[in-house]
């Protein structure tokens, strides 16, 4: 059997955990958790409501949940993403709708935060509280990562702000300026308002 690529078709829904060492293309829906050593592609019209831990992610559809991409993350013009995004390389095309925190710094810390949160969530069986303070990069790690990123990544949050500002602009002027932070509370139990507010007009 030649290696067929993995595709979740448009009429198929998976709820649970998906793990693998190959590329995965989602055209349908996944709820739960996705862990891949390769590329996750979320096509237009597809929905992934999951914590995602992959090498590359390309989003053209909808993702709700924390994303950790160990190499790169790309949000195309049709992407709608709510949740924290940790990746050394983040690309957002004009038209992409995104809300959350971008961290181009310490991926390992972000990954640990996501997995510990997942554990807490399953243990508590309820909506997690606000996430703990964002992971700060160690200076040494920062220097390594800064080489891969086009802009200097100095103190993580200010540097990432322009990227998020661009996305916020795409949401249109009617979006409330001071929107409550949704950070850690995303994932499988994203509230209805979170999904609604990011809809582009």
């Amino acid at each position: 059997m030649a290696d067929k690529e993995t595709v979740i078709g448009p009429e198929t829904r998976i709820s649970g955990e998906v793990r693998g060492e190959e590329d995965l293309v989602v055209r349908g829906r996944i709820d739960g958790k996705v862990q891949l050593t390769q590329t996750l592609t979320v096509d237009k019209g597809a929905t992934v409501q999951a914590d995602v831990d992959v090498r590359h992610i390309v989003v053209s559809g909808t993702v709700v949940g924390a994303i950790v991409a160990s190499e790169s993350a790309k949000l195309t013009s049709t992407a709608r993403v709510v949740g924290d995004l940790a990746s050394p390389r983040v690309m957002m095309e004009a038209g992409a709708a995104y809300r959350g925190r971008v961290d181009m710094g310490d991926i390992a810390a972000a990954r640990a935060a996501v997995s510990s949160r997942a554990v807490q969530r399953s243990a508590a069986g309820e909506k997690p509280a606000m996430r703990p303070a964002p992971p700060r990069m160690a200076t040494a790690a920062k220097a390594v990562i800064a080489g891969k990123v086009s802009a200097p990544v100095a103190p993580a949050s200010p540097a990432t702000r322009p990227a998020t500002a661009v996305a916020a602009g795409a949401l249109g002027p009617a979006s409330p300026p001071a929107f409550p932070r949704v950070a850690g509370a995303m994932g499988a139990m994203a509230p209805a308002w979170a999904k609604k507010k990011i809809r582009r007009r």
């Binding site: 979740i8 078709g9 955990e17 998906v18 793990r19 190959e22």
Partner: peptide, 24 residues
């Protein structure tokens, strides 16, 4: 173009798969 769903050989799914199409 593949309309249907394929679960590749290295993939492990723990949970439920439901769909209106074919699954390999």
């Amino acid at each position: 173009p593949m309309a249907n769903t394929v679960i590749g050989s290295t993939l492990v799914i723990d949970g439920e798969i439901t769909g209106e199409e074919s699954l390999t």
